[in-house]
């Protein structure tokens, strides 16, 4: 049944080559922890992606309750945390996942660095990976403000002040991030838009490039 459904679709769209490109590849011995336990260091990239998927899914559920205006933002998070069924778990996954994804990404970066995997011909993939790192930091910075409690507010205020102290560009960065005279309603809606639309869009595009390149070039060989 499943096979005939697949064949029916495959005949019309010829998806087998695409499927082969995405999933049908070999796993060499030197990255397989079943053969060499020390190869667990090659798991960090996959775990980073796994947490990223958790972040996207939990974030989608959070937006069902979150309201991005300064009167209701805190109340909606508080309601989600204490009244909504499993709300505390979904928000917890997003909160802890945000830290874990940084940890895993950091470990993945170190693995790639110390195994020299960024060397020719994989330079571009390293640059894309570093861009993912910066987008993730941006997601962390913008997401920190959204609960709109004092910790969120004053951390963002200080962060924007630091950005504003940069010569020449500082004032433009400040206006772009803050949207008004103080950290306020405009800042919250901007950070929400950045956190939920702009940065995830950039992240998915970069991840697509990252995975395309690793699939095209294959994993770097044994040392």
């Amino acid at each position: 049944m499943l096979k005939s459904v697949y064949n029916w679709i495959d005949e019309r769209l010829d998806i087998t080559p695409m499927w082969r490109d995405v999933a049908d590849h070999e796993v060499p011995e030197h990255v397989n922890p079943a053969h060499h336990f020390s190869a667990f260091v090659y798991c960090f990239g996959g775990l980073t992606f796994f947490i990223t998927v958790i972040q996207i899914l939990s974030g989608m559920f959070l937006t069902m309750y979150y309201v991005d205006d300064i009167v209701n933002a805190y109340k909606s998070v508080d309601y989600l945390q204490h009244q909504v069924a499993f709300g505390v778990i979904v928000r917890g996954m997003h909160h802890w996942g945000a830290s874990l994804v940084i940890v895993m990404m950091f470990l993945h970066t170190l693995r790639v660095f110390f195994t020299g995997s960024y060397k020719a011909p994989r330079e571009m993939n390293w640059v894309v990976g570093m861009s993912i790192f910066f987008v993730m930091l941006g997601l962390g910075f913008t997401g920190y403000l959204l609960p709109w409690d004092n910790k969120a507010y004053f951390a963002t205020q200080v962060g924007i002040q630091i950005a504003a102290s940069v010569p020449y560009l500082g004032q433009y960065i400040e206006t772009f991030l803050q949207g008004g005279e103080i950290v306020g309603a405009q800042t919250l809606t901007r950070f929400f838009a950045l956190h939920v639309f702009f940065l995830p869009g950039a992240l998915l595009a970069l991840l697509g490039g990252h995975f395309f390149m690793i699939r095209k070039q294959g994993i770097s060989g044994p040392l």
């Binding site: 805190y74 709109w148 910790k151 507010y153 951390a155 950290v183």
Partner: peptide, 30 residues
Amino acid sequence: FMILTMSHPSPLGYPADPTKTDFVPIPDWY
């Protein structure tokens, strides 16, 4: 991950009050 999540609910303080002057700001750990 789920054990961590369930044993440590994510923190939430009091609503942002821009007129507050004695708050010690701290960014996320990274």
